[in-house]
Amino acid sequence: MTTVFGEVAALYDDIRPGYPGALLDTIVACHGGVPASVVDLGAGTGKATELLLRLGAPITCVEPDPRMATVLAARFPQVRVETTAFECWTPPPGGVDLLACATAWHWMDPQTRARSARDALAPGGTVAIFHNRFEYADPAARQAIDDVYRAVEGRSAPGRPVRFAHDDLVSSGLFDDVRAAEWHRYPEFTTAQYLQLTQTFAPFRQHPEPRREAILSGLSVALDGLGGRITMDIRTALAIGRRPR
């Protein structure tokens, strides 16, 4: 499943929102300054890379899907791209100052990811795990979309706890000063844009084609019934911690 997004790499790059600039300010503050080296795990097409480049530090991107990595390398020729899974990646000697992982931590092996992250960091280095959760500003929109998924799948659209990465770092006992932060943004999507966004979600991509078509058809009718536009509540959650010195 770590390569499921490569099927829609260009669409993913075009329609998926990035991350708020305030997140970078929080990372720098928690780290105690600008990190000297950065690794972007599960970098995809570079949605977080674009933000991390503002640090001015050298960046290595680790991305397992060659189709996503191709888009990433074309967008950001100044970064180093390693096309491999986190579990197969070899950190540089001495570790890195900042290990960032954007909307990819849940794809890593839950039995080893925290330990591997700790081992990849230099002493005192920072791990920053963040993701966008796609919610809705209007409860009526949330209900309409839930109704579509229940009609097709017999259940609401799946999700995971917002603070799952924070809880993962805390429970590992491997990091100091673990903190959580959140930001909300409220962009508006047309029906067509929301249908494109839906096609980049992993649960959607796991369905066979007839069920995908049923979901998209149901969502199109639901959103047109809401006026052809929907205001999202994009909730960005950050979990951050330090490797002990």
Rank of each mutant, 00 (worst) to 15 (best):
153 E>C: 15
156 S>D: 04
62 V>R: 12
102 A>H: 05
244 P>Q: 14
56 G>A: 11
171 S>A: 15
131 H>F: 03
11 L>R: 14
11 L>H: 11
104 A>H: 06
67 R>P: 00
184 H>T: 07
3 T>R: 13
234 I>K: 12
190 T>K: 11
167 D>Q: 13
111 Q>P: 03
23 L>P: 13
126 T>P: 00
190 T>Y: 07
61 C>T: 09
237 A>K: 07
121 L>M: 07
231 T>N: 04
233 D>V: 02
142 R>W: 01
11 L>Q: 09
64 P>F: 13
153 E>V: 11
67 R>C: 05
8 V>K: 15
132 N>W: 01
43 A>W: 00
175 F>N: 10
6 G>S: 10
111 Q>V: 10
236 T>R: 12
85 A>R: 12
174 L>S: 12
117 A>D: 00
144 A>R: 08
141 A>L: 02
66 P>C: 14
183 W>F: 11
212 R>W: 00
185 R>I: 01
219 L>I: 13
139 P>W: 11
129 I>H: 10
166 H>A: 11
11 L>V: 15
118 R>E: 00
39 V>Q: 03
50 E>G: 11
52 L>H: 12
220 S>P: 00
29 A>Q: 09
166 H>Q: 09
69 A>C: 14
154 G>S: 09
140 A>D: 01
231 T>A: 15
19 Y>D: 02
66 P>W: 15
219 L>W: 08
212 R>I: 02
119 D>F: 14
167 D>W: 03
113 R>I: 05
155 R>Y: 02
176 D>P: 05
18 G>T: 09
50 E>V: 14
235 R>P: 00
178 V>I: 11
220 S>V: 03
69 A>I: 02
242 R>N: 07
115 R>T: 03
210 P>D: 06
29 A>P: 05
128 A>Y: 08
2 T>V: 10
110 P>M: 10
228 G>P: 01
222 A>V: 11
12 Y>Q: 08
51 L>Y: 05
239 A>C: 10
162 V>F: 14
57 A>F: 02
41 L>I: 13
56 G>P: 02
99 L>R: 06
55 L>D: 01
67 R>T: 07
37 S>N: 02
168 D>R: 12
203 P>L: 10
117 A>Q: 04
95 G>Y: 11
211 R>Y: 03
36 A>F: 01
116 S>L: 12
126 T>M: 09
163 R>D: 07
37 S>M: 06
116 S>C: 08
59 I>L: 14
211 R>Q: 12
125 G>R: 08
65 D>V: 13
132 N>H: 07
207 H>P: 01
80 R>A: 12
76 F>W: 05
10 A>Y: 01
99 L>V: 09
75 R>L: 06
56 G>C: 06
34 V>S: 10
221 V>Q: 08
42 G>V: 07
95 G>S: 07
181 A>G: 12
156 S>Q: 02
60 T>W: 07
204 F>E: 01
236 T>C: 15
229 R>E: 01
28 V>S: 13
60 T>Q: 10
101 C>T: 05
178 V>R: 03
96 V>W: 02
138 D>E: 09
36 A>D: 00
